[in-house]
Structure formats: C-alpha cells, structure tokens
C-alpha cells in the first residue's frame, strides 16, 4: 500500500504544466481534469491528492504539513520565507522580477514610493541598494500605481513585458529570474521519504535530461 501524497499547487496554467511534467515522469494521470471549481482533486491510481490553492498560499500549506509537497514560484518563496525544502527547479512558468515605472521618471527625492505584491522582497531589495523607499502593498493590477501617481516604481513579475508596454511602463532593473520550484515539508521529507525521493528523482530526469 502506497501512502497518499498531497501536493499543493496554483490553479490554472501552472497546474496544467505540472500535470504534464508528472505524466512525463511516468505517472498515470487522467487525460483531463475538471479543475474548474474543485479545490481538491484525487488521483486514486497514483495516490496523489492535488490541492488547488492561491499561488501565495502554497508554501503555507506545505510549511504546516497539510500538503506534503507543493509547487511554488521562486517569487513566492522569496517573499514568504517559509521553512520548507526547495528540492527541485521545475523550470516551468519562467519569468523574472523587475523594477518598472513610467519612462524617464526619476525616483521622487522627498518620498520615493514603490508599489508591489511583494512587500518583504521589495523592501529587502531596496535596502540592499541602499535606497530608502516607502513600500506600498497592493494585491493586484500593480501597473496602476505609477500611472495614477501612487508610486514612482513598481516591483512585479514580468514574463513577456506585454503588460508593462500596454500600460506605457518601462523596466528599470531586473531583480532575479523566477521559475516554479518543487517544495516539500521537512517532516514529510523524512516520514514519506521513499515516495518523495522517488518522485523527485523521476521528475528531475524530466526537468534536467542528461
């Protein structure tokens, strides 16, 4: 009897890409998932249970051990700093974190402001640069902030640059590259050692073909 592995991951594109990776690793998954409304999907044959969560919440589920494994963007890992193992770079949903703003706009000398979904990460980045800025946390549509004058800069993920361009923004600095990572709870990593090690080694062959 194999024990159940619970895997938390974001809904939508990342879920589909992850499923593709698992198929590539030889796991028998059904051809189609009805993931429109469901929060939990079970695959009895392979003893997988997928939890479909908000991207930002994936490391939380894993840290608390309600999910053994998770698929989380490096951006989320940097922001959340959860106590979990980051085992594998899955090399899916690649993008990068960047500082952007209106073209030819200098940072305000009196009260420079930066809007972002990643307050922790952005604060750390500007501290390293030796710049004092005020961080404003937003939950979405970050591009709005410089346009309406809430902030001079934004820190956000960029994949194609299309969204920035459409909103008349330009990129100033690239902070770091982002891909999705396979993360695991420290207790599960020991208690479900055999299954997790197998999964990791099968997946790493797909991700890093020799």
């Amino acid at each position: 009897m194999k024990e159940m592995l619970t895997i938390a991951m974001p809904k939508g594109r990342i879920f589909l890409e992850a499923v593709e990776l698992l198929r590539g690793a030889g796991y028998e998954l059904p051809p189609e998932f009805d993931d429109s409304r469901k929060l939990i999907i079970e695959v009895e044959e392979e003893k997988f249970q997928f939890i479909l969560a908000k991207p930002m919440d994936v490391p939380t589920y894993v840290e608390h051990g309600v999910a053994d494994l998770g698929i989380a963007g490096k951006d989320v890992m940097l922001e959340e700093e959860r106590d979990v193992y980051e085992l594998l770079d899955l090399k899916i949903s690649g993008c990068y974190l960047a500082v952007a703003g209106l073209p030819d706009k200098k940072m305000n000398d009196v009260a420079p402001k930066v809007a972002t979904k990643y307050p922790h990460l952005a604060a750390a980045y500007f501290r390293e640069q030796g710049e004092q800025v005020e961080i404003i946390k937003l939950n979405g549509s970050i591009e709005l902030a410089p346009i309406i004058g809430l902030s001079d800069r934004i820190v956000d993920i960029v994949s194609t640059g299309q969204t920035l361009k459409e909103n008349g923004l330009v990129e100033y600095e690239k902070i770091t590259d982002i891909t999705s990572r396979l993360i695991v709870n420290p207790v599960s990593y020991r208690m479900k050692d055999a299954r997790i090690s197998e999964l990791v080694s099968r997946l790493s062959k797909v991700v890093n073909p020799a």
Partner: peptide, 11 residues
Amino acid sequence: FEIYAGNVGFP
C-alpha cells in the same frame, strides 16, 4: 538529530 511525528508539520 531532529524528531518528526505523524500529523504535525514541524519537528
């Protein structure tokens, strides 16, 4: 060493 147990996500 660390000690892990079922039902708890932390050592």
